[in-house]
Design a protein around this nucleic acid. Structure first.
Ligand SMILES: [Zn+2]
Ligand SMILES: [Zn+2]
Lengths: 715, 715
DNA sequence: TAATGGGTGCACT
DNA sequence: AAGTGCACCCATT
């Protein structure tokens, strides 16, 4: 069964996967088989509920391919920047020589150190100091690994393990780029105001990379317009899909793996989890992954939206999904476009080795994903290109690549990051939720293909087929729809509807708190001159932003924007503008669920940042919200829910740590006073089963992710 | 009373001091007064026995003066290198910008990590992580300091706190160089084979700094000839002392302070010492310091050389000596000579601020040190120039600058370093020992002034007054001699005679063990071609050293060398050569008391390295020696006695730590088997009161330093 | 502003 | 593969 279909009939799917071996949690496995040598896909399932498993092979990382024929190693960084800046990742060189360049995340700006928290920071001792390299946790050879290497201490502050390595093969004299570690210990957000970015942008101008300049101009615009910034997928240019774009690439910005459905028993491979808590930690991938729904649940709909926590928990614990993807490559297509030297480079694609290919091929077929063989000798599936046109420099608006899962948490999060990657993600809750949606009879197909395609030849945007506003009620969507279609803004859509968020931007929104960017439908007139300035100057958008323009005052944005103002410097016709407004409306309806101030410090506004997400009870959430609003000092360091505060731990683990150490964050509700609950921008607070207690129009009657925290809170 | 007198009648003294306030150990103080504001010298003494005190003011550091008029900040490092390379300190830039340059010690080469010791290393947790800045330990304001700043962790390996800061005053547009921290956590040794040094040397050639090249050539020669390398003092060029030399400078290479005699109560300021152990840790300054003997003991001689340990211990505990020296400057004279740009720069001297000047003036007068006022407005004392001639590029051979103390431990150690500086040194044992020497009626005056002065004009060395071989028997020296004279090779002299060392190079030496450089009187013929090669090529000496030339085979060195071979490339006449041979003989007689292999990895041979010294019983010592010889793997990391292993702790503290943690190094004598006793090159082992049990001709009947370790060992 | 202190990018080793 | 030398940079006072 085809899930994603282009207009010319080709079915594509985004393949973002990694590693080459299964890694099964023995503690929870019922019957597992691991066969490294054959690299054969082995999927075991007890309940047909997929779960991302931890891959084991540490010698196989995510490969980017193709790579331009760099003449100098200094060409690598700008090329990677074109890929990772849209992801919100600011790269710096950690180490380089003539035959290799290692990139990592740029260190966060040192904020003003709050005096009282220094030793507190010191207390956040990571129990498991992981090396930079991703390592399997349940490896049989853990005995060997107990002699762990000394962890390097280049900085106390920049602890993000994210690493990209470029190595020059002396044999072929060709550079290879591999993602060594795809985790982040911090938020990621496209920030065009950073100094480094401006330097990068200047470099684009110097080399006259018009395409890249335009696209980053658009990104800057979207950033300042509080529009979501979703780096588009770059499909394969095998001729079966749309024209490739200049520098965008399917990036596993944090959690790269592939979940597929299968009949075998599946079990969690998350480490340090007891069987009861396996499914209780919510991880939100910030990257579209190739996920397919388990067959058993495919057309089954839960009769009730009020599943008890226990029910969900049990289901989650028993239904898991394993997949193992060896030697994954990621297709890139910035090779020629950016470096300007290698226009003959292979078009980017996600590359897997042959054993994986056959494996994923089966899986994909199993999951109603069609695959086809490429000219470069290995079969692969294609990311879904919502534009379905051939403009090489088209700017693809938010599109979803989710296959098989109705939970957009799997599709969104492009601006978010997680300490844990998809290898550790338990999708049980997500899949449990996804089956609650009602069918909408394929109506979503149109909704899933909204695109504003800019043609450099005509200097106009071409219109996609969608014209009607998106329906944001997840109740109108059923699982089948999700399997067969994509969303515009889908990534945020499902999640925002299924998760009770602190401030909701739903259509029936009640009064939003101050400082929260809760209005997704309107555009303030005061913000429009900014756009005009931008268009007039054609300079960095950030310079044109009025200093007093705050998201707090951004009401009635879309309606005002439709009054003839130039909404985007890339939109030349009123029709284009209208469509964009519609899209923005949809997106804003679906996404403005984060804490948001008028500062862009941490992440882009109007976009859900799942980095620090974890579910809490709504009564707790309300207190958190109140606290968040009250807090005058928004220092990153003070935010206990901020991932960076947890020093690389995922938030639940971190809070668990605090609980165990009787930090009394959640045990005593009174502890909400003080700095502890200084929620930060884009922190997302979710509640469970307490919809009525929230003022904002949350959908708490939907079953949400469940964590053992809730039990902690309830006790 | 004049102590050091030049031929023209000027009395000089080396002033190496630091900081401007007393710092008294409250736990041991009987009556102390601290007056920061007036910066007045306050000396209190209970027993007239001097002890170095910890200074308190952290805003005053050791200043180098004058500083050349650097046109570029890149000129600073080579200038400093000319000063510090002879000290055995290899400088690197830690941080620099247009207005400052911060130097630190070059990181030690990473040795091969022995597999079993990794976690052991981790266990050496420094209990007191000191900041880079030297900080008072017993400050009244410790309460404030308890909120200590986070210690930066730039490297796990390079933990040496030594820091030099050069700052450009924007007002005067003049560079200032200050020693921020004068401690080292490792050995220092001039190593001409290092890459950095060769680069530095090459830089000298590029700028045609003939003087510096010659002097470093000589240093290289001495290094390869196993001759001691003692950077000469640079006297003030006020006209009252000899001509300044080009780039040498009085440097407090580790322990910069000044001890003076006084009547006030003195007490130890060493931290973490209980009253019983105050005097039990032996610290060996590697730098000549201005030390004067307490008056009470000045002409008093102990009747017995067999003082019991208890007697010494009690005396030590009660007799201490305090001094406080504010705002110290160090005279340098490399400003013009090296940079070649500032021939009008002030001649180097040790500069103190005015309050300190008057203070030290009194002290010096008190200590029979004459001072005079300089043209640059502050009085200061002069280091003793043994050459007493005016050749600006003379190369001064080892001279001593000790005043008032007969213990050469205070004068030697130029090639050694200590985690603790002189501020923490207890000289009680040293002063107790010094009074045992017999008078030799001023004969040492000549012995103290041996110098081979090379005249660039005549290309000849001028002869100093000493012509007769030095008497190396410390029994022939009395305290008065030591006060009035300087030694040739004196630094090693007293110490090697008063301390029972593992292998003795005394004249009546018994069979030395293999691999030990025990022969100080002979020169192997096989080594002579090396010198000839060196002379012929006039290149780096290291390149000419035969690979199979080992110190193990270096017997009859001096006698062979006197047979007409060119012993030094700088000696052109036979008379010069003969004198040099004599000096070498003396030095070798006095110094070859260290463990020494044929490798120069850790420190220069033929020189006592006190870094890792600590006294042990001779029976233990013998085992250690045997172990040292047996050990095939001389890895630095395996050496439990190596200071570097203690991660910045001084050795006694470190071993105490091991004892407390039941590492069972000393508790079980059987533990000598294994890697634990892998003594390293230049490790010195001393015994106490067990002279008969040692094969080598030690002088164990002399009272030696005492530590509580011995009690540990005896129990 | 002047001065001090320190983080970190990144290429050399 | 990683430590580290060095400079560019920022923060604080
Ligand atoms: Zn990161
Ligand atoms: Zn050092």
């Amino acid at each position: 069964m085809e899930i994603f279909k282009t207009e010319n009939g080709d079915s594509i799917s985004p393949i973002i996967s990694m590693n080459d071996n299964f890694f099964l949690d023995k503690a929870n496995s019922k019957s597992t088989t691991t066969n490294k040598n054959t690299k054969k896909l082995e999927v075991e399932s007890t309940d047909n509920i997929p779960v991302i498993v931890k891959s084991k092979a540490s010698d196989k990382y995510i490969h980017l391919d193709p790579i331009p024929d760099f003449k100098d190693r200094n060409e690598i960084k700008p090329w990677l920047q074109k890929i990772f800046y849209p992801q919100g990742v600011e790269l710096v060189i950690e180490r380089s020589d003539t035959i290799k360049v290692v990139f990592k995340c740029k260190a966060a700006k040192r904020g003003k150190t709050s005096k009282g928290d220094k030793d507190t920071e010191q207390n956040y001792i990571p129990k498991n100091d992981e090396d930079i390299k991703e390592k399997p946790t349940n490896d049989i050879k853990d005995v060997k690994n107990t002699e762990r290497k000394k962890k390097r201490v280049v900085s106390r502050f920049n602890t993000c393990p994210f690493r990209i390595r470029a190595t020059l093969s002396s044999r072929r004299n060709k550079w290879a780029v591999v993602i060594i570690n795809n985790k982040h210990s911090h938020n990621v957000a496209f920030n065009p105001e950073s100094k480094e970015y401006k330097k990068f942008k200047e470099g684009l101008r110097e080399v006259d990379d018009i395409q890249a300049i335009k696209k980053f101009d658009e990104l800057e615009y979207r950033f300042h317009a509080n529009l979501p910034i979703i780096p588009s997928l770059v499909p394969c240019d095998c001729g079966l899909t749309s024209e490739v774009k200049s520098f965008e690439v399917i990036m596993p910005s944090n959690c790269v793996t592939t979940t597929v459905s299968g009949e075998g028993a599946l079990q969690s491979t998350r480490k340090n989890l007891d069987p009861n808590s396996i499914n209780n930690t919510m991880y939100c991938p910030n990257y579209p992954v190739n996920v397919s729904k388990p067959k058993k649940l495919k057309n089954k709909k839960l009769s009730s939206l009020n599943l008890s926590q226990e029910t969900i928990l049990k289901k989650s614990a028993s239904a898991k999904f394993h997949v193992n993807l060896p030697h994954t490559h990621i297709h890139t297509n910035s090779a020629d476009a950016f470096s300007g030297t290698n226009s003959n480079a292979d078009t980017p694609f996600m590359e897997r080795n042959s054993s994986f290919d056959s494996l994923i091929s089966n899986v994909i077929n199993n999951k109603n994903l069609e695959t086809h063989t490429h000219s470069h000798s290995h079969p692969h599936s294609h990311p879904y290109d919502v534009t379905q046109n051939a403009y090489p420099n088209e700017f693809i608006l938010p599109s979803t690549f989710l296959e098989g899962s109705s939970d957009v948490a799997l599709q969104t999060g492009i601006m978010s990051n997680f300490t844990s990657d998809l290898n550790e993600i338990d999708f049980t809750g997500i899949f449990n939720k996804s089956i609650h949606h009602k069918p909408n009879n394929g109506k979503m197909t149109e909704l899933n293909s909204p695109s504003l395609s800019f043609s450099p030849d005509t200097s106009q945007y071409s219109m996609s087929k969608i014209q009607e506003p998106i329906s944001t009620d997840p109740a109108l969507l059923n699982e089948q729809d999700l399997l067969n279609n994509t969303f515009l803004g889908g990534p945020m859509n499902e999640l925002s509807s299924s998760i009770t968020t602190s401030t909701s931007n739903m259509i029936n929104n009640s009064e939003p708190p101050e400082h929260f960017n809760t209005d997704g439908n309107t555009l303030m007139m005061s913000e429009l001159p900014v756009i005009e300035n931008y268009v007039n100057t054609n300079n960095n958008f950030s310079n044109a932003v009025p200093k007093n323009s705050t998201s707090k005052s951004s009401t009635n944005r879309a309606s005002k924007a439709q009054q003839g103002n130039t909404y985007s410097p890339f939109i030349k016709t009123e029709e284009e503008q209208l469509r964009l407004m519609n899209e923005i409306d949809k997106i804003n309806n679906l996404t403005a669920t984060t804490f948001q101030s008028d500062k862009h410090e941490q992440s882009s506004p109007a976009f859900i940042d799942f980095t620090n997400c974890f579910p809490v009870q709504s009564k707790m959430r309300n207190k958190l919200i109140a606290k968040k609003e009250d807090v005058s000092d928004n220092s990153f360091e003070q935010d206990v829910f901020n991932l960076q505060n947890s020093q690389g731990h995922d938030i639940p683990e971190y809070i668990n740590f605090m609980l165990q150490n009787e930090t009394d964050i959640f045990k005593k509700e009174d502890s909400l006073q003080g700095q502890e609950f200084n929620l930060h921008d884009n922190d997302l607070v979710m509640s469970i089963n307490e919809g009525n207690s929230v003022k904002t129009n949350d959908k708490s009657n939907l079953p949400l992710f469940q964590t053992n925290w809730d039990n902690e809170f309830n006790s």
